[in-house]
Amino acid sequence: MLDPDVILMDLVMDRLDGIGATQKILAKNPERKILILTSFIDDEKVFPALAAGAKGYILKTSQAAEIAMAIRKVANGEDVLSDAVQE
């Protein structure tokens, strides 16, 4: 069984979207840490993702260093929001 420190989750997937997948994962394993990595910045995606239990939400257009830092922060239990999402 895989035991990742942080799960990077996209919002658009074939059978189940990232919000539904986040809910399913956390229902079975509430200690999991999920970081949404997506291209969507609208409130209709951000708020449901965070309400589903994601610890962070960053954009795919973020710099590699910002993504790496977000992963580290989420691994350490911190919540993370991309600057663009906060605006």
Score class of each variant (00 low, 15 high):
residue 20 G to C: 02
residue 28 K to F: 14
residue 12 V to C: 04
residue 17 D to G: 07
residue 6 V to F: 13
residue 7 I to F: 13
residue 7 I to D: 00
residue 81 L to W: 05
residue 80 V to N: 11
residue 52 A to M: 06
residue 72 R to I: 03
residue 24 K to R: 06
residue 34 I to W: 03
residue 35 L to R: 08
residue 73 K to Q: 06
residue 71 I to Y: 06
residue 79 D to S: 15
residue 64 A to P: 14
residue 45 K to L: 00
residue 55 K to A: 05
residue 78 E to Y: 14
residue 6 V to L: 09
residue 40 F to L: 11
residue 77 G to E: 02
residue 39 S to Q: 02
residue 37 L to Y: 09
residue 16 L to H: 04
residue 50 L to Y: 04
residue 68 A to R: 14
residue 15 R to C: 03
residue 66 E to R: 03
residue 41 I to N: 10
residue 27 A to T: 09
residue 57 Y to I: 01
residue 33 K to P: 10
residue 15 R to V: 00
residue 51 A to W: 09
residue 73 K to E: 12
residue 74 V to P: 08
residue 49 A to K: 09
residue 9 M to I: 11
residue 83 D to W: 03
residue 69 M to K: 15
residue 10 D to A: 04
residue 69 M to Q: 15
residue 21 A to F: 02
residue 2 L to T: 07
residue 49 A to Q: 10
residue 68 A to Q: 07
residue 45 K to W: 12
residue 46 V to T: 12
residue 27 A to N: 02
residue 47 F to R: 13
residue 87 E to A: 08
residue 69 M to D: 15
residue 41 I to C: 02
residue 10 D to K: 10
residue 26 L to M: 10
residue 72 R to P: 00
residue 9 M to C: 04
residue 70 A to F: 02
residue 39 S to M: 12
residue 49 A to I: 14
residue 11 L to A: 05
residue 63 Q to C: 01
residue 59 L to Q: 07
residue 4 P to W: 14
residue 10 D to C: 05
residue 62 S to R: 11
residue 2 L to M: 07
residue 16 L to D: 01
residue 20 G to D: 12
residue 53 G to R: 07
residue 45 K to M: 14
residue 58 I to W: 06
residue 85 V to T: 04
residue 15 R to I: 00
residue 31 E to T: 09
residue 43 D to C: 02
residue 7 I to G: 03
residue 36 I to G: 00
residue 27 A to I: 00
residue 48 P to W: 01
residue 58 I to A: 03
residue 35 L to H: 13
residue 1 M to P: 15
residue 77 G to S: 07
residue 21 A to D: 10
residue 82 S to C: 14
residue 9 M to W: 06
residue 53 G to H: 06
residue 14 D to E: 14
residue 52 A to H: 09
residue 32 R to V: 15
residue 23 Q to M: 12
residue 68 A to W: 00
residue 60 K to S: 13
residue 73 K to P: 01
residue 35 L to M: 11
residue 48 P to K: 02
residue 75 A to D: 07
residue 19 I to C: 09
residue 9 M to V: 13
residue 68 A to M: 08
residue 31 E to M: 12
residue 30 P to N: 11
residue 75 A to C: 10
residue 15 R to T: 03
residue 61 T to K: 15
residue 4 P to T: 08
residue 26 L to V: 06
residue 53 G to W: 05
residue 61 T to P: 01
residue 54 A to T: 01
residue 31 E to D: 14
residue 3 D to K: 15
residue 46 V to K: 09
residue 84 A to Y: 08
residue 25 I to Y: 06
residue 22 T to V: 08
residue 54 A to G: 05
residue 35 L to T: 00
residue 8 L to T: 11
residue 81 L to P: 04
residue 40 F to A: 04
residue 51 A to F: 09
residue 86 Q to C: 07
residue 45 K to E: 11
residue 27 A to H: 04
residue 44 E to L: 06
residue 16 L to P: 02
residue 43 D to L: 12
residue 22 T to E: 06
residue 17 D to E: 12
residue 2 L to I: 15
residue 26 L to Y: 02
residue 84 A to I: 11
residue 2 L to Y: 05
residue 59 L to D: 03
residue 6 V to G: 15
residue 46 V to G: 09
residue 25 I to G: 10
residue 35 L to V: 08
residue 63 Q to K: 13
residue 76 N to A: 14
residue 72 R to H: 12
residue 16 L to K: 12
residue 28 K to W: 13
residue 25 I to T: 10
residue 52 A to S: 13
residue 58 I to M: 10
residue 85 V to E: 00
residue 59 L to T: 08
residue 15 R to P: 00
residue 13 M to R: 06
residue 27 A to P: 10
residue 62 S to A: 14
residue 59 L to P: 01
residue 31 E to G: 14
